[in-house]
Design a protein around this nucleic acid. Structure first.
Length: 413
RNA sequence: GCAGUUGUCGCCAAGUGGUUAAGGCACCGGUUUGUGGUACCGGUAUUCGUGGGUUCAAGUCCCAUCAGCUGCCCCA
């Protein structure tokens, strides 16, 4: 027996319907806001991620699926979507097509992690990127599009957390101050934090250890280090959210894991036990320097990504509307197919029939068991008379000796 | 990467070293000809995640390995 590789999974019928509902909703919501879909390769030059995601990040340090191809090129299965989109933006000179460039993507991502509920090695994201504008109003557009998608999927229990990391200057000053503070209490904090304060001092603030949290209450706060620009931008975003009636919480410990963020970062979390230890459904922020870091002209940008597996867990399968299904009971499978084809084409109906020429009773039982809405009786006697029988299984109404036109009318009711 | 836990038919499971591995659900077929999911009968694991080992004897004990679940780290 060969099993699916660790951390991967097959998406089967009910799940795949749910996924397709999510994707269709995203297509619609994003199109309404003028975002176009972009499809980029699933693997890229390893250097792209080293530079984009940041050499210090956990993704690069221990989670990349990297391999050499037959020509000894180092390639990596994409661990996230933004890097590829930015690469494509630069390579295809998209900045000349009219800024801002508004793109969205969907598809599998890969990270070599320990699988858990809501966390897989091959997982799927839907993401959105708006490139070429530094206006906080486009941050608002992006956040709104994310909220709109989740609202359209009828999700509740969601909380939006936002924070501003400020621009590069403010952030550098803050990190220096924070690091000084942390080094002074180095002996008192947990081992994880000792490591974090070197690699990613912002992360310390998010430590789960209560003892550490108490110490960090005295830490310098990021908002004390915002310069005028950083402060103004964040104010516009906050008042914009209020105007849109989008509730939010400012969480000064929200720093996010990737190196490339500036200014506003945000996450949407859901408190639901179906997600296990993973509560973040959607996360994103502004990355104003990434594009020039990757060799493009300076272009500020903002985007988010959301996890499809987590979203699917939250929505559950009960939201799926059952499609109306029709079953043809016939003693001749080829005649049944002919009729099915006609009804599918002319009425756009979901029509099935039996392929085994089973007995009448068997076919009716099958139609009931599989939850069909209506059956058409189309046996030898009907065919000779040129008529059809119809039974609505939910309401128990039965119609006999119908001509084709009348059958069609009733089928659509 | 670390820690804990689990792995018997498609699903839920009984089994605690000794003949041919319970049971339920689901699935398939039948109960003789065209109208209801019921009922009854029958079928479906040469095998207990995989590979080794201990033993006269292993699903049951040991080791390894793979996978699932949970927490940590981190993230979508």
């Amino acid at each position: 027996m060969i099993n699916a590789p660790r951390g991967t999974q097959d998406i089967l019928s009910a799940q795949s319907k749910l996924w397709s509902l999510i994707e269709k909703t995203a297509e619609k919501v994003f199109a309404q806001a003028g975002f176009n879909e972009i499809r980029t390769p699933i693997f890229e030059d390893t250097n792209l991620f080293l530079r984009a995601v940041g050499e210090a990040s956990d993704i690069v340090n221990k989670e990349m699926y990297t391999f050499l191809d037959k020509s000894e090129r180092s390639l990596t299965l994409r661990p996230e979507g933004t890097a590829g989109v930015v690469r494509a933006f630069i390579e295809n000179h998209l900045e000349h097509t009219g800024k801002p460039i508004k793109l969205w993507y969907r598809g599998p991502m890969f990270r070599y992690e320990r699988p858990q509920t809501g966390r897989y090695r091959q997982f799927h994201q839907i993401g959105l990127e708006a490139i070429g504008s530094a206006s906080p109003h486009i941050d608002l557009e992006v956040i709104n599009s994310g909220m709109q998608l989740l609202d359209s999927l009828k999700l509740t229990n969601l909380t939006l957390y936002i924070n501003s990391l400020g621009n590069k200057n403010s952030r550098t000053n803050y990190i220096n101050a924070l690091q000084q503070f942390l080094f002074a209490i180095k002996d008192k904090v947990c081992d994880d934090c000792k490591r974090r304060m070197e690699v990613n001092p912002l992360r310390c603030l998010d430590c789960k250890v209560e003892h550490d949290q108490n110490l960090y209450k005295q830490a310098p706060k990021i908002h004390e280090f915002y310069d005028e620009e950083s402060k103004n931008i964040f104010e516009i975003i906050k008042s914009g959210l209020e105007k849109l009636s989008i509730k939010y919480h400012v969480d000064e410990n929200l720093v996010r894991g990737l190196d490339y963020y500036d200014h506003c970062v945000f996450e949407i979390k859901c408190d639901s036990d179906v997600l296990g230890a993973q509560s973040t459904v959607l996360g994103g922020g502004r990355y104003d320097k990434l594009i020039e870091d990757l060799g493009g002209n300076p272009n500020p940008a903002v985007g988010f990504a959301l996890g499809l597996e987590r979203l699917a867990l939250l929505i559950g399968e009960n939201q799926l509307a059952e499609e109306k299904k029709t079953f043809i009971i016939s003693d001749d499978s080829s005649e049944a197919l002919l009729l099915a084809k006609k009804l599918r084409n002319e009425l756009d109906l979901n029509v099935e029939f039996d392929y085994e020429n089973s007995k009448f009773k068997k076919q009716l039982e099958k139609a009931l068991k599989r939850n069909f809405d209506q059956v058409i009786f189309f046996l030898e006697s009907e065919r000779q008379a040129g008529t059809f029988g119809l039974k609505k299984l939910k309401s128990n109404q039965e119609f006999k000796e119908l001509d084709f036109k009348r059958l069609c009318e009733l089928l659509l009711e």
